[in-house]
Structures are given as structure tokens and as C-alpha cells.
């Protein structure tokens, strides 16, 4: 069902990370600092966070899908297009048009977002490692699945509900990744569709809560 197997996929990731190591470390530092910035809160931080998210979506789309994954998968250009589109949407929201303000929530929505954040940062590469892929583990900001999860996780931690259209492509990717994970036998990807299933009630709760209370994060 897929034109490649897991061995070829992780060989590609290994090569991708090795060849671009100069960019890997700064990108990782940037991404790992975002949860810390969110603690500070504020509109300016919000624009920076969304801007960084936009950058990583563009990176994964243009570099990983556009330059590397096309070697293995004829669908890679389509994936590149989706990721670039999401990157552009996020860039638009990082400007003055979007006013996403982040703050940690201590409700159900926050817990779901927190779990997804931890899974994106730690769970994904850990499960790849435990699956035996010790050199091409998929890292947030550099590979598609963890990046999509990180985005969803952070967007759940906004003061006002984030626009629903920002969740569409991450949700779509969750099903693509889930399917690929099922075909290739990769545990790390199997959580992706479940994340979408959890997302629906989380977003619904958040929207209702905001409509009723104009709720701010506690």
C-alpha cells in the first residue's frame, strides 16, 4: 500500500538529519523554547510562537517533503503543498491579522494539549528509538508527525479559541500518518488519529466555554 518500507523511511530520516545537522540544532532550540515563552504570555509572544510554527511547517514542507521524501513517495509533492499551505496560514496569523495569545490552561483542554505536547517532543522520538530506529528518530520541527502534533498542542493553549481552519491540515495529516504507521508497523504514528478524536471534544469544549464565560486561561 505504500511504495516504501520502514527501513527505507528511517534511512532517509538519518540521511536528512545528518546532511542538515547545521540547521537541526538551532531549529530544535527554537522549538523547545516555545513552551517556555508561552509561560510569559502576551500578544508579542503569541506572534513569535505562531511565526516559529509557520517556519517549521514551511521547512518540513519544502525541505523534508519537497527535497527528501520525493525520493521514496510519489505523493510527497502533495504533502509538501499541504505543509506549505499550513505554513502560510500560520504566517498570516502571526501578523497583525491574527491575534493568538497563548497561555497554559489547567482544564481538560489544557491536559489534552499538554499530553500532545509531551508526545510530540518526547514520545514520538522515544517510540521510534524503542522500535529500533536509533539514528533517524523523528523530531519535532523537522518531521511531519511531531510538528503537526506540536501545532495542535500549542493551539489548544490559546486564550481565545484558535481559528478552526488552523486545525484542518494537522488533522488531515494525523490520518495520513496514522494510516502510514499502520501499514509500516510504526507505533509512534498510531496515536495520530486518536489525537484528532480527542481534539474534537477539546475544541468543542473550548469554544463553548469561551462563548459562555469569555474564559481566560487560569
Amino acid at each position: 500500500m505504500l511504495p516504501y518500507d520502514a527501513e527505507a523511511l528511517f534511512a532517509l530520516y538519518t540521511s536528512y538529519l545528518h546532511q542538515l545537522w547545521l540547521f537541526v540544532l538551532p531549529l530544535l532550540i527554537l522549538i523547545l523554547s516555545m513552551p517556555v515563552w508561552i509561560l510569559r504570555g502576551g500578544a508579542a509572544v503569541g506572534r513569535i510562537v505562531v511565526g516559529v510554527l509557520a517556519l517549521v511547517w514551511l521547512w518540513v514542507g519544502l525541505v523534508f517533503h519537497g527535497l527528501y521524501f520525493t525520493d521514496l513517495n510519489f505523493a510527497a509533492p502533495i504533502y509538501a503543498g499541504l505543509f506549505v499551505l499550513q505554513g502560510l496560514l500560520l504566517f498570516w496569523h502571526s501578523g497583525s491579522h491574527g491575534r493568538l495569545v497563548f497561555a497554559y490552561r489547567r482544564d481538560v483542554v489544557g491536559w489534552i494539549g499538554g499530553f500532545l505536547l509531551l508526545y510530540a517532543l518526547i514520545g514520538y522520538p522515544l517510540l521510534d528509538y524503542l522500535d529500533g530506529y536509533t539514528s533517524g528518530m523523528r523530531l519535532v520541527g523537522l518531521s511531519a508527525g511531531p510538528t503537526a502534533l506540536l501545532t495542535v498542542a500549542l493551539l489548544l493553549h490559546t486564550v481565545k479559541p484558535a481559528p478552526l481552519h488552523l486545525f484542518v491540515i494537522p488533522a488531515l495529516w494525523a490520518f495520513i500518518a496514522g494510516f502510514s504507521g499502520w501499514v509500516l508497523g510504526l507505533w509512534a504514528d498510531l496515536i495520530m488519529p486518536l489525537a484528532v478524536v480527542a481534539l474534537v471534544p477539546a475544541l468543542s469544549w473550548k469554544h463553548r466555554l469561551h462563548a459562555v464565560t469569555g474564559h481566560k486561561a487560569v
Binding site: P3, Y4, D5, A8, A11, L12, S15, D71, L72
Partner: peptide, 13 residues
Amino acid sequence: SYVTFNVGQDARL
């Protein structure tokens, strides 16, 4: 050669 030879540029593969 479907899947089996789709190994990209990895030297070992």
C-alpha cells in the same frame, strides 16, 4: 522492485 528496491541513497541499503 516495488518497495524492495525503493531505498533512496542509503549506502548500506
